[in-house]
Design a protein around this nucleic acid. Structure first.
Lengths: 180, 180
DNA sequence: AAAGCTTAGGTGATATGTCACGCAATTCCA
DNA sequence: TGGAATTGCGTGACATATCACCTAAGCTTT
């Protein structure tokens, strides 16, 4: 940091971001930080779920028959496998999910949403989505919704192409309806 | 989840997001997840820093005289104070920062960037910014940079207004140049 | 200047996440 | 078909984060 003090002109060469890019990146980081903080806080105070809990339950809730191998679940929500393993065990102790061996391939553990888990999720989702709407969309002018989606989708596509992570399966997070 | 199966029409009433909003939200969450994962991964493999380490060092590097009270640092990067306290102690053991009591108010601990910390940060920043450019901006059409910035800035302003968190001080994260 | 409030931080118990490794089921292939 | 490679996961040691609570310095009031 603190070099490249060129008074605000774009930086064409390899190393740094030009000023328009810096603007976008700064805005992105700020939104990301605050939003994560607030979502966590809201969930924990209005429900018995943490944001990670919520992510797991949401992924399961839209899965076929509310059930998913650990490997797939990890890919869906972008976690390390062993994190899922630990987390799911803890959630099972709270009766939010249950685990069982697949009959077809006895290496795989299938994680299943319990009835209680589904109820807790649906109760929590109301407040969560409400928060997202209030914090995110109430501040977003209608005419920028389209461009924002486009921009983020482009970036996402690029990340998948460039990134080192196995490409994910379709996933709908945080109150995004699955319209079956 | 899994209710409100209205076949794709916008949902006007209170509870859920309409389909354009769902599109934006889904894209946002996906980008957020992948990007965090990749940034962490890159930093840890190309330097001796984690993403949290990097955030701390970046905040300090743009501070006046490379020095900041813990309280301010926490606000800058959106952490709980005690997290900063613990983390900074560990970083001090690695000689990335150092702590000392303020002379004017002996309650405050001032965290300072060490010479070694600055060197490590500057070495790490090169690869980090390179990754951000490759993953984020290479996928973002120039004509969408402006709208994206605008959209995220609107959202950010709204979060600050609505949110429960103390409004932050100015902060420039992750390789955003401070052009003093 | 002492009682009581407020503010900055540290601390220790606990929860959570990561990493390296190991084991067992499956698949590959000579 | 039997051994090697691969795959899916669990585990335990360790790193990190959170939470409730503690101390002490400064401030305010009387």
């Amino acid at each position: 940091m603190s070099r490249n003090s060129n008074g605000g002109a774009p930086v064409p060469e390899g190393g740094w971001l030009d000023s328009e890019q810096q603007r976008a990146w700064l805005a992105y980081i700020r939104v990301q930080l605050r939003l994560t903080y607030e979502m966590n806080r809201q969930l924990q105070s209005d429900s018995e779920l943490s944001l990670p809990d919520y992510d797991v339950l949401t992924a399961l809730s839209v899965a076929d028959r509310g059930l998913m191998p650990i490997k797939v679940l990890a890919a869906q929500i972008g976690w390390e496998r062993s994190r899922v393993s630990h987390h799911v065990r803890r959630m099972a102790e709270r009766d939010l999910v249950s685990c069982s061996l697949s009959t077809s391939d006895r290496r795989v553990t299938e994680v299943r949403l319990t009835q209680h888990g589904r109820e807790v999720l649906e109760a929590a989702a109301v407040g969560h989505v409400e928060l997202v709407r209030r914090l995110f969309f109430d501040g977003l002018p209608r005419e920028l919704e389209g461009p924002l989606s486009q921009a983020l989708e482009s970036v996402y596509t690029n990340i998948i192409a460039q990134g080192t992570l196995p490409p994910p399966v379709d996933w709908r997070p945080h109150g995004v309806d699955d319209r079956r």
